[in-house]
């Protein structure tokens, strides 16, 4: 006697290739993700230059100043104007001095927006100079075109 199985047919797709691909995608994005982009600021679009190359050795004691298009300055997550920047720089200087270094050892990294007025950048430099800072780095994007 022929007995028919009452179980419904389950059309099970093979999930293996999909899972393989998904894991490969995850691995790809995990490797490329850059958590160390703390230096970047959304309000700043850097100008570009063909001559610069990423530094092989990181700058010592960097003080990173983001200068937005409207001239506002971001230092360590706090916003300053040219008039109040002195306070922020003094705070940074006290950290550098606590490590037994002087203003000559510090590097002021200026990340200014490409459309910022140059005068605003010069004012930032002037305020930093008043704190005896002498080493400046004008940060730009590498232009490979």
């Amino acid at each position: 006697m022929r007995v028919k199985s009452k179980k419904p047919d389950l059309a099970q797709g093979d999930l293996t290739p999909m899972i393989d691909m998904t894991f490969q995608l995850i691995a790809f994005f995990m490797v490329l993700i850059n958590f160390a982009q703390t230096e970047a600021n959304d309000r700043v679009v850097l100008p570009s230059s063909k001559l610069v190359k990423p530094p092989e050795v990181a700058l010592e004691f960097p003080i990173i100043l983001h200068v937005a298009q409207d001239g506002e300055i971001v230092l360590g997550g706090d916003e300053f104007t040219v008039e109040t920047l002195r306070i922020g720089l003094q705070r940074e200087m006290s950290v550098i001095k606590a490590e037994g270094k002087t203003a000559n050892d510090a590097n002021v990294v200026i990340r200014a927006h490409q459309d910022t007025a140059m005068g605003d950048v010069q004012e930032v430099i002037r305020v930093a100079q008043e704190q005896n800072l002498i080493n400046f780095a004008l940060r730009v994007k590498e232009d490979n075109r």
């Binding site: 001559l51 400046f136 780095a137 004008l138 590498e142």
Partner: peptide, 8 residues
């Protein structure tokens, strides 16, 4: 984006 510096 790769970045570099002009040192002054």
């Amino acid at each position: 984006e790769m970045e570099g510096d002009f040192s002054v």
